[in-house]
Design a protein around this nucleic acid. Structure first.
Length: 376
RNA sequence: GGGGAGAUACCAAAGUGGCCAACUGGGGCAGACUGUAACUCUGCUGGCGUACGCCUUCGUAGGUUCGAAUCCUGCUCUCCCCA
């Protein structure tokens, strides 16, 4: 994997760059649609390519391991073949499930034992076997196993958890170095900074993570309920330390405003379920603000969902029609909303990239932020 | 023509003397959702009031009772069965 910086914005930490993988190039800043179980919910790979113009998608080790299982994916020759997606894939390690399935798991130095949400069966994830599973999946970028701490989280817990994440990281890297790719294309491994909302822990974690010299680095454990300002503060502390010549990935973030703010802090990669999940639940993101399409006021608004040009599907359907579809729980409604939102997210990061390149990023950012937060 | 059942809030449907402004579901309205156990979850849904509360409701008109959606009588309407 290569990371080539085209331009760094002088007024902020924002960068426009290019990640080169064996499955193609990624123009950054980039948003990665989340396809947890080998599918971006409700969206065909073709729409991902043509309508949304996704450059890389994310998938999940935990979900794919439980179903369909690594044997099936290996049989297909890796996840790209299995799902019919020729562009890059990043896989999360399952670390987030340690957090989100916290009622059904036990953490130890060795790794974590969890119960399947599908059938209750017991399984173990270790820093090592998670690398092996991601070898079987064949993702271009694989993530280290970490513990995503909850918020709030007391200092002692955060500190101990961080030590565990760091020791897991070392083991994961060793496993990564002593194993090899299965399908002929290169894979890379990203470590994850943790440390909850404590400056010293974040700082230390960023230093530890940087010291491993991986090809890219991630920031985890944010946007889990802490105030937005705190998230930016932590991100800023970390991006100041993480090497500038490697991509920085802010995991699980976020709202359109979160993306723009974080790009200014030097973040290059994002992923979030918001455009798809909230889209399914009737929330639409546009250049002018956020629409809750279920609200009565849209019931007889026959204007296009979004005519700004940010999404190709926006002009094709009216607000009144989409409202009807969402309220009727019709599949097409979830699909249109998801395609539109993902298109908008990809449009937003592309726009940010262009503004960084032509030197007007900060100006553009200040102009668009109030709109992005606006409720229509 | 004869016999039977029933009328409850936007709809459906519980409740059959006080714990009923009335279970529950649907619908409606609003909110939440950030590395997806999520086409999910939460709240509100007679009127007025932020609220303690007050006022008007269970086809309709009367009656019994300290007290009625619940018991009695008349009326109106609906449905089912037999001719």
């Amino acid at each position: 994997m290569k990371f080539l910086i085209n331009h760094t914005d002088p007024g902020s930490g924002a960068r426009a760059a290019k990640i080169v993988t064996d499955h193609g190039e990624i123009q950054t800043p980039i948003f990665m649609p989340v396809g947890t179980a080998g599918t971006v919910k409700g969206i065909s790979q073709n729409d991902l390519r043509e309508l949304i113009q996704a450059q890389i998608i994310l998938s999940n080790t935990y979900h794919l391991y439980l179903r369909p299982g690594t044997k099936i994916i290996e049989g297909a020759g890796g996840l790209n073949n299995f799902i019919g997606w020729e562009k890059p894939i990043l896989t999360d390690s399952g670390g987030y499930q340690v957090f989100s399935l916290s009622n059904n798991r036990k953490i130890s130095e060795e790794g974590y034992i969890f119960q399947s949400h599908i059938d209750g069966s017991k399984h173990t994830f270790t820093p090592e076997n998670v690398v092996e599973i991601q070898r079987s999946i064949g993702s271009d970028i694989m993530m280290a196993l970490d513990e995503c701490t909850p918020y709030p989280c007391d200092y002692e817990y955060a500190k101990n958890s961080l030590n565990l994440t760091h020791s897991w990281l070392e083991r994961g890297i060793n496993q990564f170095k002593s194993s090899s790719a299965k399908y002929g294309h290169n894979q890379t491994f990203f470590p994850i900074v943790q440390g909850s909302v404590y400056k010293d822990l974040r700082k230390k974690s960023a230093e530890v993570v940087s010291s491993f010299g991986c090809e890219g680095n991630a920031i985890g454990g944010l946007s889990v309920g802490e105030p937005e300002e705190m998230m930016y503060e932590m991100t800023s502390i970390v991006t100041d330390i993480l090497p500038a010549n490697k991509p920085r990935y802010l995991m699980g973030v976020g709202t359109p405003a979160n993306l723009v703010e974080s790009i200014a802090l030097g973040v290059d990669m994002f992923d979030c379920v918001m455009p798809t999940r909230n889209g399914r639940n009737g929330m639409l993101f546009t250049e002018d603000g956020i629409i809750n399409i279920r609200n009565q006021k849209w019931s007889n608004d026959y204007s296009a969902i979004d005519n700004s040009g940010a999404s190709k599907i926006g002009p094709q359907y009216s607000k009144a029609y989409l409202r009807h579809l969402i309220i009727s729980k019709e599949m097409l409604g979830a699909q249109i909303a998801s395609i539109h939102n993902l298109s908008f997210y990809l449009w937003l990061v592309k726009k940010a990239r262009l503004k960084i390149l032509d030197g007007t990023f900060s100006e553009w950012k200040n102009g668009i932020l109030p709109n992005l937060r606006n409720r229509l």
